[in-house]
Structures are given as C-alpha cells and as structure tokens.
Design a protein around this nucleic acid. Sequence first.
DNA 1: CGTATTTTGTTTAGTGTCGGCACAAAGTCA
DNA 2: TGACTTTGTGCCGACACTAAACAAAATACG
Lengths: 398, 398
Amino acid sequence: MERGRGALGPALELVHTGRAPTRAVLTAELGVTRATAGAVAAELEALGLITVDARPAAAGSQGRPSHRLSVAPGGPVVLAAQIHADGFRAALVGLGGRMVATAPGCMTVPADPSHIIDAVVEAGAALLRETGRRCLGAGLAVPSAVAEPDGTALNPLHLSWPAGAPVRRLFTEALAKAGVPGPGEGPATGVTGNDVNLAALAEHRHGAGRGARHLLCVATGHRGVGGALVLDGRLHSGSSGLALEVGHLTVNPAGLPCHCGSRGCLDVETDPLAFLTAAGRTPGPEVSLLQQARDLLRTEYADPAVRAAAELIVDRLGLGLAGLVNILNPDRIILGGLHRALLDADPERLRAVVADRSLWGRSGSVPILPCTLDFNSLIGAAEAAWQPVLDDPLTVLG
Amino acid sequence: MERGRGALGPALELVHTGRAPTRAVLTAELGVTRATAGAVAAELEALGLITVDARPAAAGSQGRPSHRLSVAPGGPVVLAAQIHADGFRAALVGLGGRMVATAPGCMTVPADPSHIIDAVVEAGAALLRETGRRCLGAGLAVPSAVAEPDGTALNPLHLSWPAGAPVRRLFTEALAKAGVPGPGEGPATGVTGNDVNLAALAEHRHGAGRGARHLLCVATGHRGVGGALVLDGRLHSGSSGLALEVGHLTVNPAGLPCHCGSRGCLDVETDPLAFLTAAGRTPGPEVSLLQQARDLLRTEYADPAVRAAAELIVDRLGLGLAGLVNILNPDRIILGGLHRALLDADPERLRAVVADRSLWGRSGSVPILPCTLDFNSLIGAAEAAWQPVLDDPLTVLG
DNA sequence: CGTATTTTGTTTAGTGTCGGCACAAAGTCA
DNA sequence: TGACTTTGTGCCGACACTAAACAAAATACG
C-alpha cells in the first residue's frame, strides 16, 4: 500500500548530508521512480524529519521547478556530548549536523569520570527541557580508545581517569538519571566513541570529507595523536574498537622513548609538546599545550627556530602519513588539531613528504585537507547517535 | 509469482562457502520463511548451480531429515590463473572452491607479460575444451600490486616485467584470443588482482579465515612481503587497489637499507632471503628462495644458528604484525609463505611478540593462524571471478 | 507395533512495495 | 500563445515475500 519503506533510510541520509536538495535528485540518487521518491519524501515529512517547501524554488533552468527538500527546522534532535582535557560540552544537534543549542561547561572533578559524565548529561538534559525538543538518541565523544563491545575507555590518560573506565555504562546511567527520554518509552541508550573517530564521521558527512570513499583522519589533541578511518561512509573501528591507534607508528627511529616501549613514535614526535620542545619553548601551565602550540605557530612562524621546529614535525608527520597511505590507500586525508595548523602553515611541504615516502606516486598524490567543522567531535557524537534513525527511521520512530 | 529472487545471491554464497548444508539452515541464515528458502534452492538448482539431494541425509536427530544442499558437481566453472616467479598455473574452479582441473606450466619468456598471460590463458582454454564445462568468468593472480581502475601491475619486479604492465587488458585480450566464452554471448572479461589479496579472499571463504569479520593476511613470496585485508567478506584494496602494501613498515630501525629509501623494512627483514642470510647461508640458484628457506627451517631447525635466525625473523615479523594490529585491529591473522613456516616452527614466540608490542592485550590476543588452502591465490582468483555470480546469479545467467 | 511429536518441505492465498505508465502541473523557449 | 521540458501524482499490475494450513518423514514413547 504505502510506497517507499525500503528506501527510507538511504533517502533520509541523502537529505541529511545535503546530497538530495530536491525530489528530482533524490529520485536519481536512490535509483527509483519519481513516484517512489515522492512517496519516500512524503513519508519522511509525515515523520517530522524533513520538510518539503510549499513554494517551488526559483527555477533557473527549463522545466517545472523542484520543491526544495530540507531537514525539518523544528524536528527532533539528539543529545551530543564531548569531554576533553579542558572541559566538556553538551549540545543538541538536529539532522544535517545543525547545532540547535549548546552549553559549555568547566571540568570540576577531573579524577572521577562518573561525575563529569553526569554533569555533561545534565547540561544536555537542561537544554532539552529549555527547548522542548524531542530527543531520539545520545552520543558521547571521549579522548580515549573505546573498546567494543564493552564500551570501556582504555587510555583516558589525559583526563587522569582510570584505564578501563566503563564510559558507555556511565553515560547510559547518567541519561537515565537525568531523565533523557529515548525514542521509545524507556530512557535513551548512549552511544560512546573515541573523539577522533567521531570527528572523522562528522567531517565525512558534513565537512571536508564529503564524498570520500576511503577517508583517513589524523589529529592531535593536547597530547598524543589519534586516527580514524571511514570506509564507504561507515566508521571502521576494527573488531574491538581499537583500529587506527596510529600514535605508535615509528617516525624517527632514533627518537624519543615512548611509554609503549619503542622510540620515536608518532605520539611523542608530532604532538603539541613535541613541537613546543623542538622550538625550544618550555610550555606553561596557563593554557592547553594545543593552544600554546597553535599560538606559537601563528604568531612566531617567522622565527627561524619555530619554523625549523614546524618543518621537523611536518617531516615526521609526513613519514607517518606515508606509512598509513601504504597500508590503507585512502582517497583523502583530513588533519585536525596541531596537524591541521601545521598543514595550514606549509601545505606543500607535507604533501611533498607524503608523496615522496609513500610507495606509489598515485597514492602519494592523495589530497590532504584541513578539517572544516567546528566542534567536529561533538557533531560526530551526534552523527553516531543519529545512525539508528538514518539506518531505519520507521523502526526508531514507529 | 516466482519466489526468492532477491535472496538468490546471499543463498548461493551460503551454499558456496558451506554455511548452508540444508534448506533448514538456509532458512535460518537468510532469515526468511521455509517457503522462500525452498523456492530459492529450487531456483538455484534450476540454474544448475547447486544440487538438492533426492534422498534425505541420514537423520541423527528428531524430526523429518533434511535434504543435503551442495554445489552442483558438473556445474559451471571459472577459469583461474596464477603467475609467480617459478612459473604459472591454470585451473578450472567450480563453486565451493573446488578445483575441477588444473595444468601447471613452465615460464618460458619471463620478460614479456603478454606471452606468459597468453600461455596461461591458452592452458586454461585447453582445460575448458577438454572438460566441456561452461565458463562463467576468469580471474588472474599476479605477484604485484594491481592499480585500480587501470588494472596495471605496479611492481612485478620479481617477474622482471616492466612496471605498469597492463595485466588486466592483456588478460582480457588473451581470453578473447583463446576464445574463452563469457556468461553471455561475448568473450569473458578478466578479473585481475594481487596474489596475496586473492589468497586472503580464498582463505576467508574456504580456509583458515572462515567466519572472521576483519581478516588480515600477511605472506611472503620468494622476495618481499605482501598483505591483504578482508572486511566483512569483501576485499579491502583501497581507493586505487594499493592498500596493504605492508612491505615497508619499519621493523628494525638500524636494519638493512631498502629500495624504498628507508631502512629495516618488513620486506628486506623478514623475507626468505633475509632468513637465509641471517642463518649464514648463501642461497643457491637451483630452487626458489622460498623453497630453500622452508627446507632450511624444516631440516635444520635444531642447528642453533638456524634457530636463532628464525627467532630473529619472527621478532621482526611480530613487530610488523603488531603495528598492523594497532592500525587495523583484525580479529584474525593468517600467515602464508615463509611466515607460515615460521609460525609452524614456533607459534608461541610470534604470538607473544605480537601481544607484547601491540597496544592492548585485547587486540594483542588476536589469533594468528597458518593458511590452510593449497593454491590459495589460484582459488582466490577464481573467487574474484565468481563474485558477479555470487552477487546476482540471475543477471549473469539470465 | 502403533500413535504422538518433532522437524522439514510444499501448496495456496494474501500482502506490501515498487515499476510502468498516463496524466497533470509549472516553468522556459521561440 | 503554443511547444517543449522537467517535475510531481494517481492508478494498476508485477513480484517477491509472509502466513498459514497441509503433507511428509523421521524419532520418541507407550
């Protein structure tokens, strides 16, 4: 009777990522008939997820103009949360990666994950109460590898949390405690993941990674280096969530010792502390290492010592990226954190090093881009929370 | 009217990989009703791809016994070909990875890829004429990275071929020349791939990799090291076919110089020549380096120098595998060539090294197994050739 | 030995989703 | 204004599947 149930998920994802601005292109993208695409759009509109403009858009070309398809402005949201070394942030994020409301917060109890998670979830719950939006899910990004299927944080070292903290359970419990409703009758179940992984997902959907088939992301936080891989639109997090732990690739055989037992790991050779040290600076305690490194790069790049340090780090990073290119053969690389700043400072040098050290010119010519999304880990947490809806809107929304 | 068209491909794959021995488990695996599974099986039988036993199998349990489902013994085949440093081999391979006929051959004109490919295809065509089997496709495995979408061999160094040889085009032309028919009316189009990649596919379907979600394969040929990754049953060959070029991971910072410009690469530190050299042997020209290395390992493992050399290579290999585990987080690793022999000689040492050097105990405990299939590259070439049939039997067979 | 139970396979009817097609709508182009 | 182009919709039929009843072939148990 009702048409377009099977294509509902793919259709929503197309509108969500902005690849289906009208029903006409939706028809083409889905590979169905206009009748089906129309039914799909009507169904998604009935579910309150998208809107179809009443007035047709201004037509520049021949033929009957299309009505614009867009994400429903007042539609449901997900609760997104991010925890990093400097604090936490909660937000409500709608379809299309739109941040509807946000509330930054300060980290008060660094040593106890449960307190922080409770606080950030409560901040999100407050936003839900204020806005009155319907909540369909919740996602949390943490600066640590998250083991599957347990949902434990294996190395939240820079948060001074205990290794193995059960973040997913804590998150779900906090959601229940704060009364955040799920799509059904019970409380929401939380999705939890590594921040770089989630950032990669966000960049793939809404940022510099759009359209990439095999997207590699590498980023520094304040300490260490994280990686992520998005394959055909799905995050590849390995069989137990621990893929792309790229911090211990050897990039300087005679380099600094690393806590992993080896020397010259990407982690200790290319993170903000490495850059500050190479530039002969002693980091201060006022602001984060990442901030200090970025500031140094921005304000004192003319200083030969700073420039030399930047080039040294770029060379090391290039070696690591080349190794990853040889293994993963991505068609795009996106950099975040300090690496992004280093790319901005001297894009050609990094590209040259990667091309030179990767095996084939073909894969060496892979584009390397800066990330483009603000709060990409937060948006990524939202993307992960949206995933069940994108996969099958009917099952979630009934 | 006719039931079970959509599930035809998945059903065939289940029978093909031996995961659906009866219609009852086919029903369960497909998640459909008995009626549909029965119709699917009937359709596949009508296409001549599978057989349903007339007599029910001996029933050990309660209830009506199931009829056995199996691959049709006299059914269609694909032409599979493999080229390696010592020669080439052609075979006809049916569903289920069954080698129906095979013909080894000697390499006569090493420097010219077109002659060898013509010869191996002609050998396969002869098998087709002899057996009178219907041919549904053709696959070729070569010891080189194969660039996509061009189908050129980038580093067929050990064959003394020119880099960039257009192997896919040559293969397809040879198939036309030899009159190998495709599924339709025209000649067959050839699938071409790297031998380790195809071997990994074969091991995943029929060998030690069955059931693995993220399967990593690493193998030596005569020189150098190859890698392959099978994700959720599909080969991951990267955006341009160059993924898993693992030979240039650094495993010994102070090691031998490599043609890639670095030192101590997996390629030069763990291949057969490296083992023979470490054991103080001077390789002779009679048999292949791989054969010499295997023989040495088998016959003189009691010799302390040989054993020490083996342990050295195992340690280096373990370092490389640990690096790959950190990046890919596979749930199984399969080794081939000399690496397989080294694993057989001392399984515990390699597992301990990998566990010690990979970041998390959890991913460090990944099972490491020897490959179990004879001629796995050849079977893998057949698997790649079967793929269109497995994806959609009706489109291929009409 | 015969009947009940269990599991498998088949037949028939019904249902839901989608393609095909005709038609309507809304613009541009000449 | 009329021809053309492109988009959207309503109706019908094809078809792949489910549901449910029935049939078949073994074991289990009295």
